[in-house]
Nucleic acid binder design. Sequence first.
RNA 1: GUGAGUGUAGCUCAAGGGCAGAGCACUGGACUGUGGCUCCAGGGGUUGGGGGUUCGAAACCCCUCACUCACCCCA
Length: 425
Amino acid sequence: MKFQAPRGVKDLLPPASESFRRLEDEIRALFVLAGFREIRLPIFESAELFARSIGESTDIVEKEMYVFSTKGGETLALRPEGTASLIRAALEHRLADPGRIERLYYQGPMFRHERPQAGRLRQFHQAGAELIGSSDPDDDVDLIATVSRHAQATSIPSSRLLINSMGCAECRPAYREVLVRYLEKYRADLCETCRKRTETNPLRVLDCKIPQCQPILESAPHITDFLCPDSRNHFDHVSRGLEGEGIPFTLTHRLVRGLDYYTETAFEWVSDALGAQSTWAAGGRYNGLVRQLGGGDVPGVGLAIGFERLFLLRELAGTLPHFPDPAVLLAIHPLEEAARPYAHRIMASLREHGIPVVGLFGKTRMKKAFVQAEREGVRFIGLLGGDELSGGTITIKHLQSGIQKTVSAFPPEDLAKTLRETWSP
RNA sequence: GUGAGUGUAGCUCAAGGGCAGAGCACUGGACUGUGGCUCCAGGGGUUGGGGGUUCGAAACCCCUCACUCACCCCA
């Protein structure tokens, strides 16, 4: 084979592509019900934008971004996530002014240069919802509850919600110091990455899965014990709110978001059904991001859903949506040369009336035409021969039942009505 | 970036040093105004690629590429 798709990208063929689209529609509807409106964002941005927002010392920025330079000398990057773009756009168009509340969602491909594995691609898809301008914990609760309820309604297998607090600009540095002091004490027993991270990004150390580090990390100080009164209050309010809503969650002290901009509430939904990449949705509050990107003191909270992972889970659950069946209602088969123009005319008028129809022109033998119609999943086949041509009629046969009748082909709305209503399940 | 496993027809897989095969799929015919069944026939392969060992390699060795899973990281 001369050409094949680059590593880590996938062609999505029917019927999976159709289910994928339906799944996108479903998530879009979910966000719309919660008051979010769509924002269309560019696929590439200034590389600097991501470095500034996600964090210089994160893996995403350090080694996973597709960075390229243009003829004009700009350094751009394929977007590795959506929040940075969205906030940039909100600032650029003055949607993130202090005091203003804006609910926006996005959807589309993201790019990270990682080694592919189950649930991980180099081009993958996310849908994200971001609420800009509110610092109220009840907005955290609402956003989390919306996704958790949808997960439950669509029977996502063994899904669990994990919650933690990342503190704020006040208390996180204090906790950080306590944590670093603790880690330094056990420095000799930590793995090499953890030793390095103790200096560069100590909170990430909590995420380490290397066995030798586990005992140390298990008894590391919890961030929730060092929250300032405001952060404590916020987190308690979110916890109580979720309890009040009957949304089950697990307080996970070692849950840390991989992106630097998160503050306060951090949450993620995991499932054991997914393999090693178990997170299918995640999010959190990012009260410092807008300022970090040059805006005012505007808080935000948001989340993103990984579509490929959601797709897998819904497939396992048997709740994957499908295209309306059948996609094509009628296949028209001209039986002789003279009937071809007649076939075109009927097809055009039926399409005008919303009937999806294909022509079986290349199949000269009727048997082949029937086989092709079956293959395309159509419900009816329409036969046009000399009799139909002279009578202005069409013989329609319902493939499943074998029932057939010859009806007038005009006016098309009558034929369309017949097709829509006759023998419909 | 690291590691392990796997690469044979469109798909699922046989052949484990001695003729590259099966099932499904595909194409044609039996069958030119009525499909699904059946029967017959056919097209398809540099056995991922390159090198080596051997009289002989899909098989054994080396290199390489790809895929899968895991590490890492994350949605």
